[in-house]
């Protein structure tokens, strides 16, 4: 438990650094450190599947962030309505804390899940699916429908990115105006 709290503290520090620091490269590296902390927590909680996925996704997202966005300037936030935005932030934070306390009273304590459906999977998973990795048997056998939806989401995301940044449109835009990037 102590290790989790130490990693959580480091993650909070990393998140604060990522928001507050001026240099964009340092901010991206701090975000990467937060992701590494999350991966470590998954490893401490005996969830190697989640840890592997979190680690590799973190690596590819840091690479993409550094390669693709590092030279763009940060948009300056307006400081005129500082009082109003401060009050709004405080109200939102108070509501979040109150709802959070109410919710955390209802859920079972940490490390003692209810395990109604999961107990069924754990008991019969190996005989019914033949897979010794229970995560794979849930993702691709019991819950294959959800994974199909997730795959569709990823397919749509890739389609969206390729549509937005495609080079064909860039060329016609350049011949039309030329000042499409500041």
């Amino acid at each position: 438990m102590l290790a989790i709290y130490i990693v959580l503290m480091l993650m909070i520090i990393g998140a604060v650094i990522a928001i507050e620091i001026k240099s964009l490269l340092s901010s991206v590296i701090a975000v990467g450190a937060v992701g590494m902390g999350l991966s470590l927590i998954a490893l401490i909680l005996n969830a190697p599947d989640v840890a592997i996925t979190q680690l590799v996704v973190e690596i590819i997202s840091v690479i993409i962030l550094i390669r693709a966005t590092i030279k763009k300037d940060l948009p300056e936030s307006t400081t005129e309505q500082r009082v109003m935005s401060g009050v709004a932030a405080l109200v939102f934070l108070a509501a979040l804390v109150l709802v959070g306390i109410a919710v955390f009273k209802e859920i079972p304590p940490f490390g003692q899940p209810i395990m109604r459906v999961a107990g069924e999977y754990l008991a019969n998973g190996v005989q019914e699916t033949g897979a010794t990795n229970i995560v794979a048997s849930i993702l691709l056998d019991y819950r294959g429908y959800d994974t199909l939806g997730e795959a569709t989401v990823l397919f749509t995301a890739v389609l969206g990115v390729l549509t937005v940044v495609r080079r064909q449109g860039k060329k016609s835009e350049k011949s039309g105006g030329g000042s499409d990037h500041e």
């Binding site: 990823l154 890739v158 990115v161």
Partner: peptide, 21 residues
């Protein structure tokens, strides 16, 4: 799906950055 899709995203964003530069 994941491998080709993520590599396509990375390539698209890197190429976009090169074009902007």
């Amino acid at each position: 799906k994941v491998g080709a899709g993520l590599f396509a995203i990375a390539v698209a964003l890197v190429l976009l950055k090169l074009a902007v530069e």
